[in-house]
Every structure is written in structure tokens, then in C-alpha cells.
């Protein structure tokens, strides 16, 4: 699948933002006043910034507001609605702690759940697609949630929590890569795609068009798969192992936190790029790819 920068940025940043907001709403760290303002500002900036980045990849953004209408069937619609509702409920809690020094625990708990639900809906947009077998797996939602919770805990200054979550995430990610490689295209082949398997093995003789097209650009992306192993190692080391080690083994200071967060972000972006670039779509089979 084509790794669109806007979508990679969106899912990474908004996930981090919602993770941070979830922890803040649970009182981790128990901040109030100006400090709380700075924390919530970072959370909102990431979550909203990510959402705005996602609008950039729309070809016809003037109809974006209609995306709130189809929550009955569409995970993308549910994501949009959940994000708005979550951000509104978080705002109630944030106003309480910033301006009045009051922690509305029940509101905070609901807000945290809504933040995580939003991340879950994002994950389900990918998980639901039977056409991309690598995404169509039970591992996708927990991976998205652990990214949000682990990265959020890093930002929220919760070293032990962050380290544990990132270590679990590292193992789950590695498992998902291995399983995804095994799954391939989940039994779909050029023979099943064309129905010509009864005659024999099928190969493409001639493509339907000489040039590129939307389908090839979007769903038959192949660049960089040969670097998959290197990128996986980069993701594991920078994204999870290094921040976890810094949080557990080195005395926590602002400097170690900044290094851990920067490494985590770089690793996760590499991993998210791979999430798209490595994912094979069954329709590329029609092009013999």
C-alpha cells in the first residue's frame, strides 16, 4: 500500500496525542494549573494536528464534514465522531484541573476511555480490510492501542509504565511481522483472482495499460520492501528498546525523556511507514504483482 506521509503522520501523532490525553485524564501525572495546561496543550496539539494531517490526504476535502454521518457501518465515520466527542469530554476534565484545580474523576475516566476508543476506531479502519491480509489481523488494534498508551506514557512522564508497555509492544510487533509474512495474501492468488486456475498456473501476458494509474500507485506499492528487515530493526531498537532502556536503567531527567521521546517517534514513524509499504493488497494480483 502507498505510504502517504499525511496518513503516517496522522496515525502516529494523533495516536500519541490521544494516549497522552488518556493518561492525563486518569491523573497520571496528577498535574493542575499551568503545568496541566502545558500537558493538555501538547496532547491536543498532537491529536488535532494529526486529525488535520489526515484531511490533507482527501482529494475532495469540502465534503469532509459529511464523514460524521455513516457511523452505523463505517469505522472511518466512527473515528471522526469519536475523536470529536473524546476531545470535548477531555476539555471538560482539562478545564477542571487547569482553571479550578478540581479533578472530576468520573469525567476523566470516561474521557480516557473515549480517547482509547478513538485509537481503536483508527485501528479498525485497517483491521476491517480483508483485501489487505497483513492488516486484517487481531494484532492490529492492540498494536495501535499499545503505541498510544506506551508513547503517551513516555510523554506523560511515567517511566515504568512506558517501559513495560513498550516492551510488550515490541514483542507483539515482532509477532505481527512474522505472522504477516506467513499469511501473505491469505490464500488469494492470480488463479483465484482470474478464475483460470482450473486450466493451470496463471501469469500476466500484457497489462491493461502501458502507463501508471491510481490503482498501481495506491495499491501495488513496492519500493523499499527490500529494506523491510533493516526498518524492522530500526523500529524495534529506536521505537521500543532504547526508550524502554532509558526509562528503566538511567535516572529520569528532562534530557533522557527528550531523547527517549525523539527515538520513540523516529522508530514509530519508520514502523508506520513499513505498516503501509509492506502491506500487500490482493488486487495487485490482477497486475501480477
Amino acid at each position: 500500500m502507498h505510504p502517504a506521509p499525511s496518513v503516517i503522520l496522522f496515525s502516529t501523532l494523533s495516536g500519541l496525542g490521544f494516549g497522552l490525553l488518556a493518561w492525563l485524564c486518569l491523573g497520571l501525572p496528577p498535574v493542575t494549573g499551568q503545568v496541566a495546561f502545558v500537558f493538555f496543550f501538547i496532547g491536543y496539539a498532537l491529536a488535532v494536528g494529526g486529525l488535520l494531517a489526515s484531511v490533507l490526504h482527501l482529494a475532495n476535502p469540502k465534503n469532509a464534514v459529511k464523514a460524521f454521518s455513516q457511523w452505523r457501518s463505517s469505522w472511518l465515520s466512527r473515528e471522526g465522531i469519536s475523536a470529536i466527542v473524546a476531545l470535548l469530554v477531555v476539555a471538560v476534565f482539562a478545564i477542571g484541573v487547569i482553571f479550578f484545580g478540581v479533578r472530576l474523576r468520573a469525567v476523566g475516566a470516561v474521557a480516557a476511555l473515549l480517547c482509547l476508543w478513538t485509537v481503536f476506531t483508527t485501528a479498525m479502519i485497517y483491521t476491517q480490510l480483508k483485501t489487505v491480509p497483513r492488516w486484517n489481523s487481531w494484532t492490529t488494534p492492540p498494536i495501535f492501542l499499545l503505541h498510544a498508551l506506551g508513547g503517551g506514557a513516555l510523554l506523560a512522564g511515567q517511566p515504568r509504565l512506558a517501559a513495560i508497555l513498550l516492551i510488550v509492544l515490541g514483542f507483539l510487533m515482532a509477532w505481527a511481522w512474522i505472522k504477516g509474512d506467513e499469511k501473505g495474501r491469505a490464500g488469494s492468488t492470480m488463479e483465484s483472482a482470474t478464475g483460470l486456475g482450473a486450466i493451470g498456473k496463471v501469469r500476466q501476458l500484457e497489462a491493461p495499460h502501458t502507463g501508471e494509474n491510481y490503482l498501481l500507485r495506491e495499491m501495488a506499492y513496492r519500493v523499499g520492501r527490500k529494506h523491510a528487515l533493516k526498518l524492522r530493526v530500526i523500529t524495534l531498537v529506536l521505537g521500543y528498546a532504547l526508550p524502554a532502556a532509558l526509562m528503566l536503567l538511567v535516572p529520569v531527567s528532562h534530557l533522557t525523556a527528550v531523547i527517549a521521546i525523539a527515538a520513540h517517534l523516529a522508530g514509530v514513524l519508520a514502523g508506520r511507514w513499513l505498516f503501509f509499504a509492506e502491506a500487500e493488497h490482493v488486487q495487485a494480483l490482477y497486475y501480477g504483482r
Binding site: 500500500m1 490526504h57 482527501l58 482529494a59 475532495n60 476535502p61 469540502k62 465534503n63 469532509a64 459529511k66 464523514a67 472511518l76 479502519i125 476491517q128 480490510l129 480483508k130 483485501t131 489487505v132 488469494s188 491510481y214 490503482l215 495506491e218 495499491m219 493488497h281 490482493v282 488486487q283
Partner: peptide
């Protein structure tokens, strides 16, 4: 249509 392309992703 807002041109998000998700339907094209969902089509095998």
C-alpha cells in the same frame, strides 16, 4: 464523496 479512497482499498 470526499475522495478519501477507502472504498478503493476495500475493493478486492
Amino acid at each position: 464523496c470526499m475522495g478519501c479512497g477507502l472504498c478503493a482499498w476495500a475493493c478486492p
